[in-house]
């Protein structure tokens, strides 16, 4: 209970809900030391704590694989659902249909999303389900000990030296093409950028896909791999600098600063996008696709907010649902009256 975890103390640092960071932690990780996924788990803990998200409102959802084990390692006070391989999108959809007030936090891997689960991923995109969908992308199957996944780059090698002969799926390209309304790529080693993107995704209403390159230290961190720490560090090309300003922040923000684009998100938070050495408009889907195409040709790992669209309705909007969760509606609102049954029976006589 919170009283035992959170003894009253004026000394403890707390967020705007009065909760400590401890309330956002999970159990101890069982992933390899140095695994990129652990860094992402840490960012999740920080962001949900700093944003003051109520942990009991979050549903952690995952499929199967190293990435999908990680929800046990953060947000221990949130319900978690580790489902079947590649099917997290359907689990997320069902949970959010039942309770639209839940904050869906999906964590999946490249095998889970781009191989076995690509069908469900595509349909999730199409539905623009309001949730955060983090792909912990290391280009390799870890739990089965080092086979290529469908995001492995052409020519990238296994530890044995065997090269990948098939081109990768770029999950960001798919997300852009099929309807996600917040598409980003980041790197598990880029703490600042990932934090800003995660917070913005929490503030966004719609499907947020964050493809995080998250190196596998055991099976895919060698010379010749394009998903190794050193390769990504050498080839990362940030689109811009991101600063997230939460809606409850009292800090005034200059409006007309040169080179800064501001995106207002669903909850009133703002994402300040500071230009680096290129012109990039993250509200242009075609621009995003073109930038990814160019980056791929140049061997660059393009990171940052690729695309955001705050206007598109979500699946839950289209369903015209009542405001409160369907899951806890009382009997008198879900079982029609005796008169209704009598009316239907009369029609069938």
């Amino acid at each position: 209970m919170s009283t035992t975890l959170n003894p009253p103390s004026t000394q403890k640092k707390t967020n705007r809900l009065g909760l400590e960071v401890l309330n956002y932690k999970g159990s101890k990780t069982t992933l390899c030391a140095g695994c990129g996924h652990n860094s992402i788990s840490e960012r999740i803990v920080e962001c949900f704590y700093e944003m003051g998200v109520e942990p009991w409102q979050v549903a952690k959802l995952s499929g199967i694989g190293c990435s999908s084990k990680s929800p046990a390692y953060f947000l221990g006070q949130s319900h978690g659902f580790n489902g079947v391989h590649g099917r997290m999108p359907s689990i997320a959809t069902g949970a959010l249909l039942a309770n639209r007030n839940l904050i869906g936090l999906g964590v999946t891997g490249d095998g889970d999303t781009a191989s076995i689960g690509i069908g469900q991923f595509m349909h999730l995109l199409r539905r623009n389900l309001p949730m955060i969908y983090i792909i912990e992308n290391n280009g390799v199957y870890g739990l089965t000990k080092g086979q290529f996944s469908a995001t492995a780059d052409l020519g990238s090698t296994l530890k044995t030296g065997a090269p990948n002969q098939l081109p990768p799926f770029d999950c960001c390209v798919l997300a852009l093409q099929w309807g996600a309304t917040f598409v980003a790529r980041s790197f598990s080693g880029d703490k600042r950028q990932l934090q800003a993107l995660l917070k913005a995704a929490i503030a966004h209403r719609g499907l947020s896909v964050i493809d995080v390159i998250s190196p596998c230290v055991t099976f895919n961190d060698h010379e010749g791999s394009t998903k190794s720490y050193s390769y990504v560090q050498d080839h990362e090309e940030a689109l811009h600098e991101l600063e997230f300003v939460p809606y409850y922040s009292e800090i005034a923000v200059d409006i007309a600063e040169g080179g800064v684009q501001e995106v207002e998100l669903h909850d009133g938070s703002r994402l300040r996008i500071r230009k680096l050495d290129r012109q990039y408009d993250p509200t242009s889907r075609m621009g995003a696709l073109a930038a990814l195409e160019t980056a791929e040709a140049q061997g660059e790992v393009l990171t940052g907010l690729l695309y955001v669209n705050t206007a598109k309705p979500t699946l839950l909007d289209l369903l015209n649902l009542i405001e409160e969760p369907l899951s806890t509606l009382p009997e008198n609102r879900v079982r029609p009256t005796r008169a209704v049954l009598e009316q239907v029976m009369e029609e069938l006589t």
Binding site: S90, I91, G94, A95, N99, L102, Q120, M122, H123
Partner: peptide
């Protein structure tokens, strides 16, 4: 849904989250 895998996955997780 896009197929029966997804249809039953949604139904089961909706049940998990309290829906009938």
């Amino acid at each position: 849904a896009e197929d029966e895998l997804s249809a039953v996955g949604m139904a089961l997780s909706a049940g998990w989250a309290g829906a009938r």
